[in-house]
Nucleic acid binder design. Structure first.
Lengths: 159, 159
DNA sequence: TTCTCGGCTGGGCATTCTGCTCAGTGACCG
DNA sequence: CGGTCACTGAGCAGAATGCCCAGCCGAGAA
């Protein structure tokens, strides 16, 4: 399941101009349409490319405040907490981690004041012992994948 | 820039089946093609929908390990640290935050052993005073936006 | 009330892309 | 040598896209 150099170019191209079709892609890459088609299909069935869902900006939806919360969970309450957090729309993602906290989640809110409401809702659940929150001020590096793809396309190492 | 109910349905539909075109979309939504087209255009120029870039799975690229690192920065070195971290492909995103740390970043690595290499590279920079890392074990809630979109589509509150 | 405007509808048009198929070529391998 | 695989180049019918237009309707302005 290693990433080919051509695969890398496909992903980078797709990331830069998502709207182009297979035909245009094959033209830019200098390969036959069938090849581009096959590569793309393979990347998708491989799971390398999960999909092409729309990237929605929470800020544009009226949720300009982002924060990360580290949670400590009462023993054995993990599943309940997960279920609880899933029901909160403002919880954008949730991870269980090693380290000082047991879980880490990304939150958004309409304002700093609203963040208080969100946090109350998040931690207002029996299984959560403690929570510490870090508010995001700037986002110097937005979620990106291209540098990693380029690196993966270079060296033959695989999984 | 509030999100209309129809807008909400468009985003949800697009998130579920990204491959459908405008025509198919208009059919499912029960509106004219021009309407779907116009709405979609508006959502994109509004910035609500940033784009349709491919969602790449780092694990499928050979980077199955994810971690979050909290960094403490030496006074006045912020810009240098940002520039440094930008050059590390394994740094998927970077935020500056309030709270105990000054920055928080998401890392990936080929293995736990490889994570050590990545961390060394990240913190092997003069401006970084201290780093604490939390390795992600599970991801009960992968990055999602739909619940938030649905909530935003409901209430008339806007930004 | 009447007017105007923006959003939506429904249709049409030429161009373009898609999904699918097929034959042919070169590389690698048992 | 024969088989498999990936790629090429081509073709075709069906479908979607970009673009245009006329008409309808409700909300707000005059």
């Amino acid at each position: 399941m290693a990433i080919d150099h051509l695969d890398g170019r496909i992903i980078v191209l797709l990331a830069r101009e998502p709207r182009i079709g297979v035909l245009e892609m094959s033209r830019r890459l200098g390969v036959a349409r069938g090849t581009a088609q096959a590569r793309l299909d393979r990347l998708q069935s491989n799971g390398v490319i999960r999909g092409f869902g729309p990237e929605v900006d929470p800020a544009a939806l009226g949720y300009p405040v982002t924060a990360f919360a580290t949670l400590q969970i009462r023993q054995g309450q993990g599943a309940d907490v997960r279920a609880h957090l899933t029901t909160v729309p403002e919880v954008l993602e949730l991870h269980t981690t090693t380290g000082t906290g047991d879980m880490m989640c990304r939150l958004v809110a309409r304002s700093n004041a609203d963040l208080q409401r969100v946090i109350d809702r998040v931690v207002g659940f029996d299984g959560i012992v403690r929570a510490s929150t870090a508010i995001v001020m700037e986002n110097p590096v937005p979620l990106r994948i291209i540098p990693l793809v380029e690196q993966a396309a270079e060296d033959p190492a695989s999984s």
